[in-house]
């Protein structure tokens, strides 16, 4: 992995600005809002004039959403408006006060994950914790982590069971291989995206702007780890199960028709918490940390254990390692 390059990137803020982009977009947006005001006044009898304020209407927010720029192109103020708009929209849809924050990446941090497959017993506690933490659609159910039940003595994924459901795990003669987004240093999905809706953040997380994705699913075709999932219909989450602590690039509830995937719990990890899957694991198989910190546990594992990565031959440089005791 190219550590030096990544450290350099960590100094930059995630929201790069393009002055020309902003001017053009603000103009478009103003025109759109003016149009919206006219239509809303006549049709619905409501005024959508104060779109960014308290009195913003559903229609005004829809217009604002339509003209919202790419995450990396938005100014600070535009991002603030986008976050407030999302919070209003979630309130309307779920009846919950959801907080959408935009915590930037920390300097000199590059996240990595290591998983001890001799400790993993296939309980799938990580899968459940992930769904709850990350506001994934319950119906149809979207899961970021897939635990494969593998035959001992083989790494052949095609012989794995994705839907194992015995009375007791672990089963005789089996071992368990959890797979999720590897946050590759050389991610094929990022190259595939025609609209730059997915990119690598300075802390190594491969993020998606759910408001920019057009839903072509080319990234799903490109991913060798089957880490990317699509919202085939309007995601449904029961009101009482909404996690109100969210991040724009992370666990905020997703719209219909866009791709999503694991982002190392960006809403937690950028605030020095562990990912939900790490906390939920009852066997302590999961180790998450900063690859740039020589004293971190993950660095200890990489330096002292025999590790491997999945499909390393594809040159994707995953930041997710497997190891054994």
């Amino acid at each position: 992995m190219d550590t030096e390059k990544t450290m350099g990137q960590a100094d930059m803020t995630s929201a790069k600005k393009s002055s020309t982009g902003i001017t053009r977009r603000s103009l478009l947006k103003k025109m759109g809002i003016a149009g919206a005001t006219a239509v809303a006044t006549t049709a619905a009898g409501t005024v959508a004039a104060n779109v960014s304020g308290e009195n913003a209407t559903e229609f005004g927010d829809a217009v604002g959403e339509f003209f919202q720029d790419h995450y990396q192109k938005m100014s600070k103020q535009e991002i603030e408006e986008a976050l407030a708009r999302l919070e209003r929209q979630y309130k309307r849809k779920y009846g919950v006060e959801v907080k959408v924050d935009n915590t930037p990446p920390q300097p000199n941090v590059l996240y990595g994950y290591a998983l001890n497959i001799s400790k993993c017993k296939g309980y799938r506690k990580c899968v459940d914790a992930c769904v709850t933490e990350n506001n994934q659609s319950r119906d149809p159910q979207v899961q970021f982590i897939r635990v494969l039940e593998m035959n001992k003595g083989s790494m052949n994924l095609e012989e794995s069971d994705h839907y194992y459901n015995p009375e007791l795990v672990p089963q005789e003669g089996k071992f368990y291989l959890p797979v999720q987004c590897m946050q590759c240093e050389n991610p094929p999905c990022v190259n595939a995206c025609p609209t730059k809706a997915t990119w690598k953040e300075p802390d190594g997380i491969v993020a998606i702007d759910y408001n920019w994705c057009i839903g072509c699913r080319y990234c799903m075709t490109a991913c060798p780890y089957w880490a990317r999932h699509f919202n085939w219909s309007e995601p449904e989450i029961p009101q009482e199960e909404i996690n109100p602590v969210t991040h724009y690039l992370g666990n905020r509830p997703r719209p219909k028709g866009v791709v999503e995937k694991c982002y190392f719990c960006v809403q937690r990890t950028r605030k020095d918490q562990q990912p939900a899957c790490q906390e939920a694991c009852p066997t302590g198989a999961r180790v998450f940390g900063n690859l740039l910190d020589p004293k971190s546990e993950i660095r200890y594992i990489l330096e002292n254990k025999t590790v491997f990565r999945l499909k390393e031959d594809l040159g994707t440089e995953p930041k997710f390692w497997y190891f054994t005791d």
């Binding site: 790419h70 809706a197 994705c213 839903g215 791709v259």
Partner: peptide, 15 residues
């Protein structure tokens, strides 16, 4: 999945 965001793919206007 999002035909309403078609303009995102148009050069110069989108990304």
């Amino acid at each position: 999945g999002r035909p309403d965001r078609f303009w995102h793919i148009i050069p110069l206007i989108g990304q």
